[in-house]
Simulated scan of single mutants.
Amino acid sequence: MKRILLMVSAFSMIACQNNNPQKANEEKTTETVSIDKSDILSADILTSEEQAKLTPEEVLERLKKGNKDFTEDNLTVRNTTERVRKASLGQYPKAVVLSCLDSRVPVEDVFHSGIGNLFVARVAGNIVNDDILGSLEYACKVSGTKVVLVLGHEYCGAIKSAISNVKLGNITTLLDKIQPAVKMAGSKFEGEKTASNEAFVEEVCDANVMVSIEQIRKRSPILKEMEQKGEILIVGAVYNMKTGKVEFFNEL
């Protein structure tokens, strides 16, 4: 089997034995790591024809498979330079993900995807506004994306701030869009309804994903019609911070 070699250089400083602590000798060591050529993903960027043949259900399964690879560390080395060149000619992503701003949720990595595979719209609390809707419509109606995924996550700071009714500059307006989820979760939750109660925060997180999906369908006739025709799927999921698993709503 063909293999490539990655050369990893390491430097160690060895103190001199001549009573002069200012001097040191630099010893360079090289470690060779071999990787099967079959483990390098040279190109999985979709063409227009390949994207058109995919069904929304197939795309959803690909997302689930990618996340499974991520959680099991079954990852593939990507030829980034080659992908940059190929993606420059056009983009035909299979899905668009509406994710929170949180730095602990690296969306492309979570789905084992690289350059040219996903549209990602990020905003604190994965809320919906006019600009987000326009971006989702562009991804689906113009660029042919087959799945809209609203992705929430555990321990979301925006969710906690909304529960605590934080008021601060433009953050106030953003958090107002999460309040319907706080009310929805609070109407059926038995227990302490505070940001310090992890169980309640999770309930609001789930409700917030559903509110965003509802807003997408309500405020975007384009996406609603595409969903009704079976051209796209609009789904929700929550990222588990402890395991890295994306738990889709039909699996919760």
Score class of each variant (00 low, 15 high):
residue 24 A to D: 02
residue 25 N to G: 15
residue 27 E to S: 08
residue 28 K to Y: 05
residue 28 K to P: 00
residue 28 K to C: 05
residue 29 T to F: 09
residue 30 T to C: 13
residue 31 E to S: 10
residue 32 T to C: 03
residue 32 T to P: 01
residue 32 T to S: 07
residue 35 I to V: 15
residue 36 D to T: 04
residue 36 D to P: 01
residue 37 K to W: 13
residue 37 K to V: 10
residue 39 D to W: 13
residue 41 L to V: 04
residue 41 L to P: 02
residue 42 S to G: 09
residue 43 A to L: 13
residue 44 D to H: 07
residue 44 D to N: 08
residue 45 I to E: 04
residue 46 L to A: 01
residue 47 T to I: 06
residue 49 E to K: 14
residue 49 E to F: 10
residue 50 E to V: 10
residue 51 Q to P: 01
residue 52 A to S: 07
residue 53 K to A: 12
residue 53 K to Q: 14
residue 54 L to M: 15
residue 54 L to H: 12
residue 55 T to C: 08
residue 56 P to Y: 10
residue 57 E to D: 12
residue 58 E to F: 08
residue 59 V to H: 03
residue 61 E to M: 04
residue 65 K to E: 15
residue 65 K to F: 15
residue 66 G to K: 14
residue 67 N to M: 03
residue 67 N to F: 04
residue 68 K to N: 15
residue 68 K to M: 14
residue 68 K to D: 15
residue 68 K to W: 13
residue 68 K to C: 09
residue 69 D to N: 14
residue 69 D to E: 14
residue 70 F to S: 03
residue 70 F to M: 04
residue 71 T to M: 09
residue 72 E to Q: 08
residue 73 D to F: 14
residue 74 N to V: 08
residue 74 N to D: 15
residue 75 L to W: 12
residue 75 L to G: 04
residue 76 T to W: 15
residue 77 V to A: 07
residue 77 V to G: 01
residue 78 R to L: 09
residue 78 R to H: 11
residue 78 R to N: 14
residue 80 T to M: 11
residue 80 T to C: 04
residue 80 T to K: 11
residue 82 E to R: 14
residue 82 E to C: 02
residue 83 R to P: 01
residue 84 V to Q: 12
residue 84 V to Y: 12
residue 84 V to G: 09
residue 85 R to S: 10
residue 85 R to A: 08
residue 86 K to A: 07
residue 90 G to W: 07
residue 92 Y to N: 07
residue 93 P to F: 03
residue 94 K to M: 14
residue 94 K to T: 06
residue 95 A to R: 02
residue 96 V to S: 11
residue 96 V to G: 08
residue 98 L to R: 02
residue 98 L to C: 11
residue 98 L to I: 06
residue 98 L to S: 02
residue 98 L to W: 02
residue 99 S to H: 00
residue 100 C to D: 02
residue 100 C to S: 00
residue 101 L to Q: 12
residue 102 D to L: 02
residue 103 S to T: 02
residue 103 S to D: 00
residue 103 S to M: 01
residue 103 S to I: 01
residue 105 V to P: 00
residue 106 P to C: 09
residue 107 V to E: 11
residue 107 V to L: 14
residue 107 V to A: 10
residue 107 V to N: 12
residue 108 E to I: 00
residue 108 E to C: 00
residue 109 D to N: 08
residue 109 D to V: 01
residue 109 D to F: 04
residue 111 F to Y: 10
residue 111 F to V: 11
residue 111 F to I: 06
residue 112 H to Y: 07
residue 112 H to C: 05
residue 113 S to C: 15
residue 114 G to A: 12
residue 114 G to R: 04
residue 114 G to I: 10
residue 115 I to L: 11
residue 116 G to E: 13
residue 117 N to T: 01
residue 118 L to P: 13
residue 118 L to M: 13
residue 119 F to N: 02
residue 119 F to L: 05
residue 120 V to M: 03
residue 124 A to H: 05
residue 124 A to I: 03
residue 125 G to K: 00
residue 128 V to S: 13
residue 129 N to W: 00
residue 130 D to I: 15
